[in-house]
């Protein structure tokens, strides 16, 4: 008999939220979408080197979770991390410059897309190693506890990363010590090119939470309200000192594993159909307009601001200088 994870956050009406929160959800999601579309275009045109992994279609997870966090809370992000950074409040210009490999980037061009960090807003870094963030977030949560704050740490991870041993070690340690960490699974159905169910023993990653004596909650990851509510109760619980939890957000990876992925493992039709039916941004728009919580005009204004912010970030990145060769040896040791 397997203990099943709870389902959370369904049937929430937008009208119960204040305008500011709703506008925040939308601003975060549209900023991520425009940012990622811009990055994709620039990568395909050869302006961006390295690898980039896009967050398109998963925006509601970052927006919904991060609306519960403060600057002093920490997050550990993933290789697919632009959305997390934006939602946590990282500076767009310095992010884009980092992705372009410029000296003005958040990591001075030393990291790139897979290694964006912005410690000023508690973004402790994307991680190029799948599953590398579980234990680090656990340690950040431990620090909160030792320092006597009510801060929390969030570890974002995918369904693929849930199969790393790091998940087990971190989940057990966090639960054994009652640490304020929330493990947020973005189950986007694809572990690189492998459908997750072919390599994973359970339908719901959140079912595993029971094995560690922590709550596991499953929400529709493309419904920002469901994510927000699911995360809210778990974050509040952690702030009260009641320990860690696992939130699984069911979503779908709309883009390839990386930009340039030939995607031979699925059909374009499948992706198009899922995107049309579940894209979190139009879903949010129609929900708030229907509930008369925000008007089309208000949404358009926010979208326009997001588009402009991304345009300015791109301009900043393009016009910024590359690092001098001498920077190679800077910042190796304190």
């Amino acid at each position: 008999m397997c203990a099943k994870a709870a389902r959370g956050g369904e049937g929430t009406s937008p009208s119960k939220y204040g305008k500011e929160l709703l506008a925040g959800f939308y601003r975060t999601m549209t900023t991520i979408r425009h940012f990622e579309q811009t990055v994709e275009k620039c990568f395909l045109e050869g302006e961006i080197p390295g690898f980039v992994h896009l967050y398109i279609g998963e925006e509601a997870v970052a927006a919904g979770v991060m609306a519960n966090l403060r600057d002093s809370d920490y997050i550990q992000s993933t290789h697919r991390g632009h959305g997390h950074a934006i939602a946590k409040g990282a500076d767009l210009k310095r992010m884009m410059a980092e992705i372009f490999g410029k000296s003005t980037g958040s990591c001075k061009g030393k990291g790139g897309s897979m290694h964006i960090a912005d410690f000023g807003v508690g973004m402790l870094g994307a991680n190029g190693v799948v599953g590398g963030g579980f234990t680090i977030a656990t340690g950040a949560a431990l620090a909160h506890k030792m320092q006597g704050t009510d801060g929390v740490a969030v570890a974002f991870f995918g369904d693929g990363a849930s199969n790393r041993g790091t998940f087990h070690e971190a989940a057990n340690m966090a639960a054994a010590w009652g640490l304020p960490v929330i493990f947020v699974c973005e189950n986007n159905k694809w572990a690189s090119t492998t459908p997750y169910r072919t390599t994973t023993s359970v339908d719901h990653i959140a079912d595993r939470a029971a094995g560690y004596g922590m709550p596991g909650v499953v929400v529709d990851g493309n419904d920002v309200f469901a994510v927000y509510e699911g995360a809210r109760s778990l974050v509040e619980r952690a702030r009260r000192g009641e320990g860690p939890a696992l939130l699984e957000c069911k979503t779908y990876r709309i883009k390839g594993h990386f930009v340039g992925d030939p995607e031979k493992y699925r059909t374009k039709e499948e992706v198009r159909k899922v995107f049309e039916e579940t894209d979190p941004i139009p879903r949010f728009e129609s929900a708030v307009v229907k509930a008369r919580a925000l008007t089309r005009k208000e949404l358009d204004a926010i979208d326009g601001e997001a588009r402009e912010a991304v345009r300015l970030a791109l301009e900043f990145a393009r016009t910024s200088p590359e690092p001098e060769e001498s920077a190679l040896f800077e910042g190796l040791y304190v």
């Binding site: 656990t138 431990l142 030792m146």
Partner: peptide, 23 residues
Amino acid sequence: DTPISETAIVGACIGSALAGMRP
């Protein structure tokens, strides 16, 4: 005293260092 979890020990120490501790 930790669980027998060397990965979590080192990872958690790193995380705590990022959050201001000296592990």
